[in-house]
Design a protein around this nucleic acid. Structure first.
Lengths: 321, 321
DNA sequence: CATAATTATACTCACTTCGAGCATAAGGAT
DNA sequence: ATCCTTATGCTCGAAGTGAGTATAATTATG
């Protein structure tokens, strides 16, 4: 018995006997420019920056930074881990593939252009996610009818009910509100219903009816959906928006950034109240008078809040209008 | 240029050229028995169940389930990913080591005993985290003085201030409230201050002054801290507590479970109000009359809530008393 | 130069949420 | 019968939050 426990302990500590796998690092890097959230891409905007984790890398994070810099020239600031998953159905070799994805946030100014990589508005990939100017027509005209048809396709009545319920929940049907955080759930439903190009790839279904939303390589669009969902959730309880802002900004610029991310509008006065009463920002003293109208005070993020307390984010005072 | 993009795309799709790594799966499996949160351990309660990810595993999750079942005989129910990290300073071979950790929740009844594995109260590992019967004496008597001493040790005054601030924030000094979610931050501070056994392991500092909290192998205690933190956060916005409950329970039993996890007491009447107004449970019709007092109605979790809507969890109506 | 248009900013109001506490109900123990 | 203990119902006040009104300070326009 003593043998057994020590063996278990050793096994828990290191596992050199295990089969080798290869590990890929994948980055979802976000910036907001001109009121549009954008994602850093390579390969004709069809892939996320990524590369294998190598022995030379000091850590997963530094490996990721290295790859993104090598492929796009972009240094990364804030990054956080998204999700790790294993793929078996990749290439035929006898090695499992593990992918570790990260979310990175960077500032507007650092955006630049290039032929090999570039920034792409994330609503190009998820046109049904932008509700800032109302419900996108794509939803009512194309997606909802097809989703409901797909739900009704199921033989089993329980299954049919389950599908309808999931569609209703994810897309805010009936009396339910649209929940901007359910980006991944929506993408997966569309995938399941074969309403995104990635779902029919490899099968010979002929070309499926033209489907909105730019597809990506492998499961990169799913990873992007995961990143967007995480960001939309996180801005509500952590002050991460500021990673995307220039050093000084007006409250409206901040609001527009939040709206771009959330894909919905917020109530202006309440938004200001929220930001101010949480002491997230301080005035720089300057004002901005660009867009015609009363000049706005400029603010900067109070870096000290990060250390001071359990900071909340931007609670998104939603506007139903 | 066309070459460059295709190359980048190919690279993003698969990376067979990458150095092989080995991947370990590590499980933090939690149950609550007799009002105590417990974690499933192996190796004399010094290690978490874990094992290498192998080719035979259909997915990371199924690999994890297989290992936990093999090492402890325990089937897993609910599991979710915690974090992935890379270790270089393990054994000397030229292969990087990646660890993927998971949080698993299981029911009380499935708990059993064995010599090779077992359930251990998680406060054995983190005695400073249990505030149900007031602030643990260990904190005021031992940890806080040492932490503050450690903060003052720093040469650089900025560094000193930073350390003090982190201690104050993580441990709720001054006017700040104790935040039960900061389990990981607290453990890491204690580690940094060399107040946990793991921090001095391998160095020949002689034996450090006796330190509260049972240590674990490698970084398993840190992983456990991550799991506890995740769970304490998650019960507030998702109805995951029910994964830990028997099929039928009284509201007090539910409350005790939440309290066990959170490490703090909640206001009874408000707790009931919260659970009931969210329609999380429904009466079974039976009552329980065991602990002396008016018999309590028994409830069961309404499984349908999971599908119905964006369910909130247990908002923890804290009691300051 | 007066007026309109536009954005900034201050305040009010109704309603909900939430921490606390009081009060009553329904069992068992003595 | 009385007390102790837990269950359960209800109220109150403070704080938070969605919405809307009102005023201020600019630029654009006629």
């Amino acid at each position: 018995m003593q043998d057994k426990t020590t063996q278990a302990t050793r096994q828990a500590q290191s596992s050199n006997q295990s089969h080798p796998v290869s590990a890929d690092l994948i980055a979802v890097v976000i910036a907001v420019t001109d009121g549009e959230p954008r994602v850093l891409t390579i390969g004709q905007a069809r892939a996320l920056p990524s590369g294998p984790f190598e022995l030379g890398h000091r850590s997963l994070q530094s490996g990721l930074r290295a790859w993104v810099e090598r492929q796009t020239g972009h240094p990364l600031g804030y990054i956080e881990q998204l999700y790790t998953f294993a793929d078996r159905d990749r290439t035929g070799d006898e090695r499992a593939q593990i992918s570790i994805s990260y979310l990175g946030l960077t500032r507007e100014e650092q955006v630049e252009r290039s032929p090999t990589h570039g920034w792409r508005g994330w609503y190009d990939y998820f046109p049904w996610e932008d509700h800032r100017v109302g419900v996108p027509p794509i939803l009512d005209d194309i997606l909802m009818p097809r989703l409901l048809a797909w739900a009704d396709e199921a033989e089993d009545p329980n299954r049919r009910h389950d599908r309808r319920q999931r569609v209703a929940y994810s897309f805010g049907l009936d009396d339910r509100d649209w929940n901007e955080e359910l980006v991944l759930q929506r993408y997966e439903l569309l995938y399941e219903a074969a309403l995104v190009a990635e779902a029919t790839r490899g099968r010979d279904n002929g070309s499926p009816p033209s489907i909105p939303g730019r597809p990506m390589v492998a499961d990169h669009r799913r990873i992007l959906a995961t990143g967007i969902a995480r960001l939309r959730t996180k801005i509500k309880y952590r002050p991460v928006v500021f990673e995307l802002m220039p050093p000084a900004f007006t409250l409206l610029q901040l609001q527009r950034t939040v709206e771009a991310l959330a894909g919905r509008l917020v109530h202006k006065q309440n938004f200001r109240r929220l930001i101010e009463q949480q002491d997230l920002v301080e005035e720089t003293g300057e004002t901005m008078s660009d867009t015609g109208g009363r000049p706005a005070k400029r603010f900067r993020f109070r870096q000290s809040v990060l250390a001071e307390r359990a900071v909340a984010g931007t609670k998104l005072p939603v506007s139903r209008a």
